[in-house]
């Protein structure tokens, strides 16, 4: 029911919303899927990565670097996904030898190293200027330069990404990831080669992170260094925490709220980061399991109120 409503809503959005707002909401969608990919790693595999911006950036820079070849957009998106997966496979095979905080630090180091590389190879990455003038081109006679057609183009790819994540979650592989998250050492005593599963999860997260980055570069029309910057690794973590780290849709809900609040605050005040931080603080303190726990909390609250209402009349005669 929820899923059908969501799909319908996403399909009609371009017909309802003014074109000026499509950019904003497509950005929200892209970050929602990015956050979901990070949550697969952090919430469902127990690998705390502080460097997923590396894959978002790899996706974006793949689009930028392939620009001179004038390939069709779907091909560049596929190549971006492959680039994310291949880099994740190689990097993951090395840094997953470490665990816990050491792994987290290595992900951060790798992310920042990639960021620095954009300065070193200024000639092809554009350094601080980035790579402007990204064109979406035409696919099968459809002009993707149009915000409405690009909305549907993006939706198609994001749906593929979310569908794949959903399959992973519902599959034996996802089940095994949760077992590893709960106790990786014990998982080894089930005959599970933990390292390979963690690597698999890391590759999937990297591939989908790269997909998000590629779609974002095509949306923005420019590739910039902040698509690789470490704050972009932190944002999806915060989104996931706000929404519910160990739930499937929670991180997406968190992304919606996070970016919307950010946008509203940025219109009002230059100190928006302060208020964003305070919002995050409120969530961690008062809703530690995130937005996804709200329906259950509401049910509990109602059940308790009902119980109180039933208990009250009994007391009256006595």
């Amino acid at each position: 029911m929820f899923l059908i409503a969501l799909i319908v809503l996403l399909l009609v959005v371009p017909q309802i919303l003014p074109r000026g707002q499509l950019f904003f909401w497509q950005r929200v969608l892209i970050f929602a899927v990015y956050a979901m990919s990070v949550a697969l790693l952090v919430g469902f595999t127990g690998l705390i990565s502080f460097g997923q911006a590396a894959y978002f950036g790899i996706g974006a820079y793949t689009i930028g670097l392939l620009l001179p070849l004038k390939l069709a957009a779907p091909i560049t998106v596929v190549l971006a996904i492959i680039a994310g997966a291949v880099v994740a496979l190689i990097v993951g095979a090395i840094i997953l030898r470490a665990s816990g905080l050491a792994f987290g630090m290595l992900t951060l180091a790798f992310g920042q190293a990639l960021y620095q590389l954009t300065f070193v190879f200024k000639d092809i990455t554009g350094g601080e200027n980035g790579i402007p003038g990204i064109l979406r081109g035409t696919v099968l006679g459809i002009n993707l330069g149009n915000p409405v057609t690009y909305w549907y183009f993006g939706l198609f790819w994001l749906a593929l990404g979310v569908g794949f994540l959903a399959l992973v979650h519902a599959s034996p592989f996802g089940h095994t990831l949760r077992v590893i998250r709960d106790d990786p050492k014990r998982a080894g005593f089930l005959g599970i080669p933990v390292f390979r599963y963690q690597l698999g999860s890391y590759v999937i997260a990297g591939a989908i992170g790269a997909l998000a980055g590629a779609l974002y570069a095509l949306l923005a029309g420019i590739v910039t260094q902040d698509m690789l910057y470490w704050t972009l690794s932190g944002d999806p973590l915060i989104m996931s925490l706000i929404g519910g780290l160990r739930t499937f849709w929670g991180p997406a809900a968190g992304a919606v709220l996070f970016i919307w609040v950010q946008d509203q605050l940025a219109r009002q005040t230059g100190a928006w980061i302060l208020y964003q931080g305070l919002t995050f603080l409120v969530f961690v303190l008062f809703l530690p399991e995130g937005l996804a726990s709200l329906p259950r909390r509401y049910q509990l609250w109602r059940a308790r109120r009902q119980a109180r209402a039933e208990a009250a009349p009994k007391r009256a005669p006595a």
Binding site: L167, P172, F173
Partner: peptide, 16 residues
Amino acid sequence: AAVMARDGTSWQFWRL
């Protein structure tokens, strides 16, 4: 989880 590990189906990501 243990049964799937024993059956060698743990890694299948394409089935439910």
